[in-house]
Amino acid sequence: MSEESAPRAGGRVLFVDDEPQLLRAMRITLRARGYEVRTAVDGGHALTEAAAHPPDIVLLDLGLPDMDGIEVIHGLRGWTGVPIIVLSGRTAGQEKIASLDAGADDYITKPFSVEELLARMRAVARRAPAAETGPTADVGDYRVDFAAKAVTAQAEGGSAVHLTPTEWRLLEALVRNPGKLVSSRALVSQVWGPAYAADTSSLRLYINRLRRKLEPDPTRPRHLTTEPGMGYRYQP
């Protein structure tokens, strides 16, 4: 059920889970870290709560008693871009991909460490405004200029990096979502079109091409990273 507001420091969190003990423990933990916490034990209440008290971040379990958590994601994404982190005991890759495709920003498998959760929360909080700011972004030693659709080395007199149109679309899809885990299907849909969303066979090839052009060590990428079986992430 909903909780009374605490002094806001870390932001407003809506925690959605049908496990009372977990709700109680996480409410205490997050409030101790300065977050204002509200809770919901099912999907319907979560959607009502989010509309009445818009959160800064949603922590969402998939296995809810009245509806699947993915339905909640769809419901939220109909009107808000609030960051959503799924917390679930479901470990199957297709569940993670379905959550990301529905609009979740990240996915953590239960059981999870509090420190990992807090780190992921900080990451999505940083990312929310960053995705809408500025005409440029940096990938390591390179500057990505969205307006000019160009990549150049940041060193004095830095040379331009030639990217094919497909490489550019893929890079843009990742860099415009800093820190966000983007599913392989979503990337293929954005780059090649929705009709090809199920065919991810070429994606790894193009990711590797980008790494060879932009990463200091393409075999150990720092900025264009892989989440095995799920997708890719741009790490600023």
Rank of each mutant, 00 (worst) to 15 (best):
A92S: 11
L76N: 05
S113K: 06
A130G: 03
V82W: 06
R77F: 11
R127E: 14
T91L: 02
G63S: 12
E95P: 00
G78S: 12
F112S: 05
I84M: 03
E95Y: 15
T109F: 02
S99T: 05
D138Y: 14
P111E: 04
A130P: 00
V82S: 06
P135A: 12
A98S: 14
V72H: 03
G75V: 03
G78L: 05
D105Q: 08
A104E: 02
M121Y: 07
L62K: 04
Y107Q: 08
G103P: 05
A102I: 11
A98H: 07
P129N: 12
R122Q: 15
G103K: 06
I85T: 04
A92F: 01
D61Y: 06
L64S: 10
G89M: 07
I108V: 15
E95G: 02
R126I: 04
A131N: 01
A131R: 15
R127M: 13
G78R: 15
E115K: 10
V124L: 07
A98M: 08
P65D: 09
P135R: 05
G140V: 08
T80Q: 09
E116C: 03
V114W: 10
G140Q: 03
L62I: 15
R126Q: 13
D138K: 14
V72Y: 04
Y107L: 10
M67S: 06
T80S: 15
R77D: 13
T91D: 13
E115F: 13
I70Q: 02
D105C: 10
P129G: 14
L100R: 02
V124T: 12
M121T: 05
P111N: 06
G103D: 10
M121H: 06
G81W: 01
L117M: 10
W79C: 01
R120A: 07
L76R: 08
K110R: 15
G134D: 13
I85Y: 08
I70A: 04
R122F: 09
F112M: 09
V82Q: 05
A123P: 00
D101P: 05
V86D: 01
V86P: 00
T109L: 03
V86W: 04
D105G: 07
P83F: 14
V139P: 00
A104S: 06
P135I: 08
D105V: 03
V114Q: 11
K110M: 12
T109Q: 10
